[in-house]
Amino acid sequence: MDTPRTNESNCWACHASLAASPLLCPHCGKVQPSAGINYFQAFAAVTGGQPLLTLDLAALEREFHRLSRKLHPDRFARASEGEQAWSLAATALLNDAYRALKDPVQRTEYLLELKGQGVGEQNAGRNKSADRQPPADLLEEVFELNMQLEELRMNQKMGEDDPALTADLTRAQAHFDGLLAQVDSDLASQAALWDSGDDTARAAALKSMASLLDRRRYLRNLVRDVKDALATPAL
């Protein structure tokens, strides 16, 4: 794994620039070490190596298939040990990168992680929760919905059916689905600001996206719980 490289952005074998294709030399086709390459850079042909949130998904898929073929470990069965290991590592990175980048939410989460604003339970407590508190009206709705869900589950356990409650929950599900769609559309607007804005706009977009993703996680869990509860037939 320690074959010397001239520098971060040149092919170890032919010294051609790797700016447009960090995993695979565009000149001599040699596989490159992938340490330190992020997902956006792995798809430099689509992203220009920049952390862009608006991506051409068809181009992303084409590049994924192209690189997957070229980097496949089977092609390096007779290559040096170093190249075999690099092709394995590059393939693994490529798979992770594709999975994350093809989904707009995961793509945004990855960007926030890169920028040190990671979200999710693992990062909880790093920021004091007070600055990340969801708005009070949303909390009220969330709490109320959870109460109704609990009542529904209780009824189901007792083998009772309360049509009014089911109707309430069906309405709530539609309402929260709508809120979720709104969050997704807000995320798309912020993504556009991130891609095209100046430094100030980008910093603001990053912050909004972090809180939108928090809100999204909240809503997504709720919608899932309501769906599950409504799908469970009374015993």
Binding site: S129, L139, E140, N146, R217, Y218
Partner: peptide
């Protein structure tokens, strides 16, 4: 007091 943890979706009153 009604608070929530956006990280995991918990809500506490």
């Amino acid at each position: 007091g009604l608070v929530g943890a956006p990280e995991c979706g918990d809500v506490m009153r």
